[in-house]
Computed example of a mutant assay.
Amino acid sequence: MLFEFDKIAPEISYKLLTSTITPRPIAWVSTLGANGVVNAAPYSFFNAMGHTPPTVAIGLVRDAARGWKDTARNILETAEFVVNLVPEELAQAMNKTSAALGPEVSELELAGLETAPSGHIKPPRIAAAPVSFECVMLSSVITGPMQTIVIGRVVAAHIDDAVVLDAARGYIDTPALGLIGRMHGAGWYARSTDLFQLKRPENPEA
């Protein structure tokens, strides 16, 4: 069946994208507001976009009634944010931080999560996260009246010592991270445990 996106409602477009582009990694973003409150929220319109320089991108959606959510407003105002990755054991805490709260409320406190200082930027990282990327915004691209894409340069990474196999070579025990991803519909997630490997062909014509 053909879906022409300029002829269907935005909510249908959203459902088609999120139910087919799966699994999606989760950026559990921590930011610091002008009021000094640390905000945290999960975003699954997210991925790495390059390594020279190390770059990530996050899609931020504007709420029709409230405007920019706290995370988006903080990033656009301060140009700093931390992308924390989500293991299965933190799924419940992550889910709590997705609640729609005012800017005066810290989702991290609500979820009972501790923070740890970042080394290069003001927003703290989530201490329990096995991976945290300190990011500085390179640019933001307005893609529509209700959304923008933030492109960030990763300036530092905090990775749990337990999963670092060889720091000099950048070898990480990825399966040991136990990260989860977003799937279709409300509340559906995937575990990263069912893996298979394919060897890339040496001959481009193979």
Results as ranks from 00 to 15, higher is better:
21 I>D: 07
155 V>K: 07
27 A>L: 12
185 G>Y: 14
9 A>L: 01
124 P>C: 05
9 A>V: 13
108 L>R: 03
19 S>V: 05
37 V>D: 02
94 M>T: 10
33 G>E: 09
118 S>M: 01
110 L>T: 06
117 P>C: 00
160 D>Y: 02
52 T>F: 14
165 L>Q: 05
167 A>I: 11
83 V>N: 00
109 E>P: 12
102 G>Q: 10
67 G>S: 11
166 D>C: 12
92 Q>M: 15
68 W>C: 03
91 A>F: 05
41 A>P: 04
175 P>Y: 08
19 S>T: 11
15 K>T: 11
31 T>R: 02
139 S>R: 15
65 A>W: 02
187 G>M: 06
156 A>C: 03
193 T>H: 12
165 L>G: 12
162 A>S: 15
82 V>T: 08
72 A>N: 03
124 P>V: 07
185 G>P: 05
201 P>R: 14
129 A>H: 04
87 P>G: 03
44 S>H: 03
114 E>W: 09
87 P>D: 04
144 G>M: 09
11 E>C: 06
11 E>L: 14
15 K>H: 15
174 T>I: 13
111 A>P: 06
73 R>M: 11
31 T>P: 00
30 S>K: 03
15 K>A: 15
185 G>M: 15
12 I>A: 15
72 A>K: 04
33 G>V: 15
10 P>V: 12
55 T>E: 09
192 S>P: 00
26 I>R: 00
120 H>L: 14
127 A>S: 08
2 L>G: 10
38 V>Q: 07
145 P>G: 01
81 F>Y: 13
86 V>I: 15
181 G>C: 08
131 V>S: 13
46 F>R: 06
131 V>C: 07
24 R>G: 08
159 I>R: 03
